[in-house]
Simulated scan of single mutants.
Amino acid sequence: MKNTGWHIIIFLALVLVLYSCTGQPARKTVREAFSDSLVPQYADKFRIYFTPEYTVFRVFSPWQGGKSTTVEYMLANNAASLPVDAVRGRIVIGTPVKHVVCMSTTHVGILSALQLDSSIVSVSGTRFVYSATIQKMIQEGYISEAGYEGSFDFEGIARLKPDLIFAYGIGPEVTSWYARMESLHIPVVYLAEYLEEEPLGRAEWIRFIGRMMGVPQKADSFFFSVRASYLSLRKLAQNNTPQPVVMTGLPWKDAWNVPSGNSYTARLISDAGGIYWCSDLTARENYELSIEEAVGKAFDAKIWINAGTARSLADIKNTDLRLAAIPAYRNGNVFSNTARIGPG
Rank of each mutant, 00 (worst) to 15 (best):
D117K: 03
K136T: 11
P83C: 07
M1P: 03
D220H: 03
A307S: 15
Y148E: 09
Y54G: 02
S124D: 07
T126S: 06
V108I: 09
H107D: 14
I326M: 08
V226G: 01
A301E: 05
Q64V: 12
A219D: 06
S225V: 02
T248G: 05
Q217E: 14
T248H: 14
I10Y: 02
K136W: 00
F152Y: 14
G94D: 06
I48R: 00
M213R: 00
V17K: 00
L200A: 07
L323N: 10
S229G: 05
G150M: 02
K302P: 03
Y49N: 13
F57I: 07
E149H: 06
K218Y: 01
P62D: 11
S68M: 08
I93A: 07
V123E: 02
F50K: 09
K45F: 12
T106N: 10
S35N: 04
P327A: 13
L281G: 08
P199T: 10
I134W: 01
I316Y: 07
W304Y: 12
A283Q: 14
R90S: 12
G125S: 09
G147P: 08
P162D: 09
G332K: 08
G89T: 06
I157Y: 03
V59G: 03
F152A: 01
A219R: 09
G273K: 07
L321A: 15
E140L: 00
S112K: 11
I138V: 15
Y287N: 10
A325N: 13
T106C: 04
A79H: 09
L250E: 14
F60H: 13
Y148A: 11
S151P: 00
P244R: 08
A13Q: 02
F34D: 02
G109K: 07
G23Y: 07
S279M: 01
G65F: 08
I275T: 06
W6G: 03
E193I: 01
L268S: 09
G150H: 09
C102H: 11
Q24A: 14
R322I: 14
S131M: 06
R180L: 04
L111I: 08
E140I: 00
H7N: 07
L184K: 07
S37A: 12
G65S: 09
Y194L: 06
L82E: 05
D44K: 12
E198H: 14
D254R: 10
T106A: 12
L231N: 09
R58G: 03
A179M: 02
A266K: 03
S81R: 12
Q217T: 12
A301F: 13
